[in-house]
Amino acid sequence: MSVIRALHRQLVTKERSAEEIAREYLERLAQLEPQLKSFITVTEELALQQARAVDARIRAGEEIGPLAGIPLAVKDNLCTQGIRTTCASRMLEGFIPPYESTVTARLAAAGMVTVGKTNLDEFAMGSSTENSAFQRTANPWDLTRVPGGSSGGSAAAVAADQAVVALGSDTGGSIRQPAAFCGVVGLKPTYGLVSRYGLVAFASSLDQVGPFGRTVEDVALLLQGIAGHDPMDSTSLKVDIPDYSQALIPDIKGFKIGVIRDLLGEGCGEETRAAVQAAIQHLQELGAEILEIDCPSFRYGLATYYIIAPSEASANLARYDGVKYGLREPADSLLSMYGKTRAHGFGPEVKRRIMIGTYALSSGYYDAYYLKAQKV
């Protein structure tokens, strides 16, 4: 059952207040944080303030939407006005944005209660949340294992019930993979469906903001709150937004589900393969038709990603030079200040990707690498 629907029912029937729900989640968050380290910043004061505002609307007899009073966690690469946004990097350790991202602004207007900003791989570059400059997030199901990445903090927070739902970003699997690792639902929306205004850029042709939840319906409801055209984002699509929760179906009889053979071969662990096969069998028992398909071009996926993403990262991260905002290391000259700031501010994985991208974009290599990867 949808967690959002259940809490919404309790709020409108006045069985519980939004403040009571917020305090319950904040207490659980604080209790689990020493082990999980899902959050970089906890926004307890803001959460209680937002919850009290929802309670005031209910007392006044106002009708509230399904997201009002629901605890939310936000990946720490989405700008939040007046609340630090670090991207899990020393480069932005003390950065407090002067503006709000479109998605967080929309959810605040819908009455959601933000409990904190979640940990990630630095600048969203990684797949384990081990590349954060501040801490390593653990998988709630087994503290010795990683939660996936780069949105590992958001996935772990939802899995551990530190928040009802969460926002992440996905460039090359950074929502889908940690959702799988933590046993929750994650969605990378169609590019342009959700505004990227206020998302700190990594690879602009791939980056996308998306939801995490414990159920498909929770993800549908959160996507409803963030999808839609935004004039502040030039890549934003002008499309009608349907009611996603109305598209949920009671059964899957007659549906065709493609199983990609290429993804169950080399590099796929036995436990993973067994879990996928069990899921396939379950879907068959529910009436779905399973079709095995081949995608031979998939083998180029990782190589293509590691040209496009680092190339765009190299260009996007050039702005962190110690001049405009963020970290600045003292030095005798401008060039020396650039070098020291970037050497101390960026972690090893970010440096590696910047160097790969700079090489791929350099004179004589652009056509051979970046342009060819774009075509693939």
Rank of each mutant, 00 (worst) to 15 (best):
R16K: 15
E20V: 11
A22W: 08
R23S: 15
L26F: 10
E27Y: 09
K37A: 15
T41I: 15
T43W: 08
E45C: 09
A53C: 08
G61H: 10
G61T: 06
E63Y: 08
L67S: 03
V74L: 01
I83T: 06
T86Y: 00
P97T: 02
T102I: 02
A105L: 13
A108F: 08
A109Y: 12
G111A: 08
G126D: 09
S128R: 10
S132T: 03
R145K: 13
S150W: 07
A156Q: 00
A156T: 01
V158A: 09
T171Y: 10
G173C: 13
R176P: 10
P178M: 07
D207F: 01
P211D: 04
G213N: 02
L223P: 11
G225A: 00
H229K: 09
D233L: 04
T235Q: 12
S245A: 15
L248D: 06
I257L: 15
L264Y: 08
G265F: 00
G267C: 10
E270G: 01
E285G: 12
I290G: 08
L291E: 15
F298W: 15
R299D: 14
P310L: 06
S311D: 03
L317R: 00
M337D: 00
P348G: 01
P348K: 12
K351V: 06
M355P: 11
Y359F: 14
